[in-house]
Computed example of a mutant assay.
Amino acid sequence: MAPWIAALGATLLMQSVASFMTQSLPVVAPLITASAGLAPERVGNFSSLVAFGTVLFLLLGGPFLARLGPVRTLQLGAAICAAAMLTAGLGTVAALGLASLLLGVGYGPSPPAGSRILAATAPKEHRTLIFSVKQAGAPLGGAMAGLISAPIAASAGWPVALLVAVVTALAAAALIQPLRSVLDAERDPARKVGLRDVFSPHNIAAPIAALRIDPLLPKLVALSVSFALCQGCLFSFTVTWLVETRGMGLVQAGSTFAVMQVAGVVARVLLGWIADRTGQATRNLVVQAFVASGSVAALALLPVGAPTAALMGLCGLAGFVGASWNGISLAEVARVSPPDRVGDVTSGSTLFVFLGYVAGPSAFSLLVTLSGGWELPMLLVAAQLAIVAALVGASLRR
């Protein structure tokens, strides 16, 4: 077996599991928020905490990645996610907040560790496709959440659904252990990970400073953040929006959510292949952003009595174009980065992306409360993506 195939299998597995863990929380959110006595839209605040936890790892986790190696760091992330789900099982508001933060920290290793593994092993002529296949694990994990966590929560209770997620994370961490001796061979056992080293100004600034390496990076980051705002809101609120405004049961809403996720899986592979063939990955993302903006706006304006098929079709389109940009973006970041700086540049770009995930759901939740409905927030999400795409597209033409 070629080394890159094993590397892709490991990173795809861990990306899928990390996404399954983080998406299981919003999928069962209508039950959890009701149990905790919270308004349904408050799930946006928990989603923002998840993203903030990831930001913390991306800012501070560089020394751990260097010392432990990417495989061990991915295993550590899975263990933290498992601990987060056990914490969420307590069901209190404080426990849900802490669990959300820990989920984000546990998800944090996936982008930089995965990119480090694939940048060292993937054939250059297929780099974008391979990165996109790995990133297909994100919507694949979300689809698993919709198809597994939602039915279990509806039939056996949401604590049981969280327990299933715990077992899944620990099993995945065990499965990739045989690859550690090969993929972690270049780790630095002497790298210090004390508090002074982790919180040093140099360590905190390194991922952000790395974004000055290439002039394409700021444009790519801006577009990726805008996509993240859109995707974060879609993933955080789709199930709750379907239950609250379309009268769906949790299982049917979870299935519709799974359609969105599966469409993203297919799109990540297909659009990654197209990006390799055209050699114009960033320009492709601009076009994709305009289509994603239109799909979200169409969802917002879809009449309440519209056929279920139309609703599921639009959700699928939104997932196809709005949740398939990640692998293309990460591949472009790796392409313009020096081999020894891939981890830092990926952490820097992903850090800003997750700031988008932090801001998006919380702002969306606030707008739902202030406007008394879901239509205006969804239209604003669509508008910001179209505006940023237009600005980046104009910059690329210049």
Score class of each variant (00 low, 15 high):
V304C: 00
T282E: 13
V182N: 04
F235T: 13
T238L: 14
G327S: 10
V358H: 03
G142R: 05
M378A: 13
L170Q: 06
G146N: 07
V388R: 02
G37W: 08
A39F: 02
T54I: 02
L317A: 14
P70F: 03
S16A: 15
A99S: 15
G89P: 00
P339N: 07
D184R: 03
F131C: 02
V160R: 13
F46T: 06
M144E: 00
V239R: 03
N284I: 04
L65R: 04
V345Y: 05
A165D: 07
S329E: 03
F257S: 09
I387F: 12
G305P: 08
W374H: 11
S47Y: 01
G194D: 14
V105D: 04
N45K: 00
D184W: 09
S181I: 01
L299N: 01
L299S: 01
L220Y: 04
P178L: 05
G141F: 05
N203K: 02
E125W: 08
R67T: 06
S200L: 06
L380G: 01
R67K: 15
L74A: 11
F237W: 04
G137P: 11
D184H: 09
G104D: 07
A154P: 05
T278F: 08
I117E: 03
A95K: 11
V269L: 05
T282A: 10
G104W: 10
M144L: 15
A34L: 10
P111M: 04
F46V: 04
K219L: 15
L56H: 04
F352A: 12
L60R: 00
H126P: 00
A383L: 15
L351T: 13
W241K: 00
E375L: 12
A174L: 15
V93A: 13
T350P: 00
A120R: 13
N284C: 01
